Simulated scan of single mutants.
Amino acid sequence: MHGPCGGDNPKCPCMIENKCSKNFPKPFLDHTSVDSNGYPIYRRRNDDLFVENSGVKLDNRSVVPYHKVLLKRYQAHINVEWYNQGASIKYLFKYVNKGPDRATMAVIQSNNVDDTKDAVDEIKNYYDCRYLSACEVSWRIFGFDVHYKY
């Protein structure tokens, strides 16, 4: 449940300019639909059921979407939503498919002795390192194709 916020609790952390930043409470709706940006607007029934939190009655308008099986299995709230629009898919995978981050580093061996006598082999000590994200590492461990052409 989200809240209480709004007029019932103006000091709630989600409040920005006297309005809930998460747009709660949501309106009652008979059917799930998709807005103009491709995000789901979930069905919320007006069944007169409520829970009381801090003296405020919270109904279906304050329910945060959840996945019951994952919630019970991992005993944690995991936000899982299915989007059916191309723009949403592009947004979700923008960060997963982002190009690899790189770092340039040098390895220098020093024994606190005057190193000016020996020539430094810059090519030997130069490394161009790639950062591999968890997604890319697991993709490579399982042996999936990283790219393909046809």
Rank of each mutant, 00 (worst) to 15 (best):
M1V: 10
G7L: 12
G7M: 07
K11P: 00
I16A: 05
C20W: 06
C20M: 07
S21P: 03
F24A: 02
P25A: 09
S33T: 15
S33Q: 08
V34S: 07
N37I: 04
N37L: 11
N37R: 08
Y42L: 05
Y42C: 00
Y42F: 13
D47A: 02
D47F: 03
D48I: 04
F50C: 03
V51H: 12
S62H: 12
P65C: 04
Y66G: 00
V69G: 00
L71E: 05
R73M: 02
Y74E: 01
Y74P: 00
H77F: 02
Y83L: 09
Q85R: 06
S88A: 10
K90H: 02
Y91H: 14
L92G: 01
K94S: 14
K94M: 04
Y95Q: 06
N97S: 09
G99K: 15
D101M: 10
A103Y: 11
A103H: 11
M105L: 15
M105G: 11
A106M: 14
V107A: 09
Q109Y: 13
N111C: 13
N111S: 15
N112F: 12
D114A: 07
D114F: 08
D115M: 09
D115K: 05
T116F: 09
K117H: 10
D121N: 15
D121V: 04
E122F: 13
N125G: 02
Y126K: 15
D128N: 14
L132K: 07
A134F: 08
S138L: 13
S138D: 07
I141N: 12
Y150C: 07
